[in-house]
């Protein structure tokens, strides 16, 4: 188990107010493995699902709506692309019901690039997930950015061979998603705003929740699990590790290289960038710059260099001027 290993301390976070501890091993041990430990040949174990997320660490996943944007993302150095019908800024502006992308478009994106392809499904819409899995997509995002399809139930993600990423605003929400089978977490932020404040709030909330759990006795953990409405075993594992037991990316409002580096210094494993790239003045240059900033997040000299002359960032919406009902992050339960 993880505790027998030397703590890696993830030396990247040297200046860090907050340091990300090591992820647990995912070779089929531990509660997060969901009992899928096996010998012989086995596909689709939790280790294999969570393993792909680990390969994406330190990278940028970019929202794309067609094959052309997917190629721009791949050439910029994205570690994966996220296929969706409209970028969050347009979903916000245009309103209406936001759904899974047209499968023909997802297929075109899969054919256009060789990096992993993710696609968004509506919360609770397990048939959209089945379709996405049938298309051979590498990761499914059960996402609050689309219009929820179920008022109470999230998808049973263990039932799928394709791994899932899900959003969270706090530790309870993250652990509920992991217990449903999510192999990767992203903090929600507020998609389509270009305002990083909610992304920061959600990462800091998760970390504060974990810090509280770390200091707790066994009795207190049972009580805290009730408060967080999560599985006590996952909470105990998280407290022991000092971090989420799966890879955690930042999302929702990252619009500049500095935003990406901020999320990395706060201890995230990588970043999702949605509207921030293709709603900016020069998507190619900005995409590249965000990739470089995510690698060299701790080097202000590099950050200054890559942040220079990128043209106009997306205009954005100030989250403080937004009503609770307008927030996408409040979707999901």
């Amino acid at each position: 188990m993880a505790t027998e290993l030397p703590i890696n301390g993830s030396n990247g976070h040297s200046n860090g107010s907050i340091s990300a501890a090591s992820l647990p091993p995912v070779n089929g041990h531990g509660p997060a493995a969901n009992g899928t430990t096996a010998t012989g040949n086995s596909g689709n174990t939790f280790a294999v699902k969570a393993g792909l997320a680990r390969m994406l660490k330190g990278g940028v996943i970019m929202d794309v709506i067609n094959a052309e944007q997917a190629r721009i993302a791949e050439e910029a150095g994205a570690v994966a692309v996220m296929a969706l019908e409209r970028v969050p800024a347009d979903i916000r502006a245009q309103g209406g019901v936001a759904r899974m992308s047209d499968p023909a478009l997802i297929r075109e994106i899969c054919e256009a690039v060789t990096i992993p392809v993710m696609a968004k499904a509506r919360i609770g819409h397990f048939v959209e997930c089945q379709i996405i899995q049938a298309l051979g997509v590498d990761y499914i995002d059960e996402s609050e950015v689309l219009t929820p399809a179920d008022h109470a139930h999230h998808v049973d993600k263990h039932a799928f061979n394709t791994p899932f990423v899900c959003g969270c605003r706090n530790l309870g929400e993250a652990l509920r998603r992991i217990s449903e089978g999510a192999a990767m977490i992203r903090t929600k932020g507020e998609a389509g705003t270009g305002d990083v404040v909610e992304a920061v709030r959600h990462v800091r909330t998760v970390q504060a929740d974990i810090a509280r759990a770390k200091g707790m006795s066994e009795q207190e953990l049972y009580c805290y699990a009730k408060e967080l409405q999560c599985d006590v075993n996952l909470l105990r594992e998280t407290a022991k590790l000092g971090r989420l037991p799966v890879v955690n990316f930042a999302a929702g409002g990252v619009a500049t290289p500095a935003d990406a580096a901020l999320m990395m210094q706060l201890g995230c494993d990588g970043v999702f960038v949605g509207s921030g790239i293709f709603k900016s003045g020069d998507p190619k240059a900005r995409a590249k710059a965000i990739v470089q900033a995510t690698t060299h997040y701790n080097d202000p000299v590099v950050l200054a260099k890559v942040s220079s002359g990128l043209g106009v960032a997306m205009v954005g919406i100030n989250c403080d001027h937004m009503g609770e009902k307008e927030k996408l992050s409040t979707r999901g339960w």
């Binding site: 290993l5 030397p6 890696n8 030396n11 990247g12 090591s22 992820l23 390969m55 660490k57 330190g58």
Partner: peptide, 19 residues
Amino acid sequence: LALQGAFSEHIMLLRHAFA
């Protein structure tokens, strides 16, 4: 090489191997 990917996992196992 820590440009991207599972580098911290390697560092963790290296330290285990050193010990």
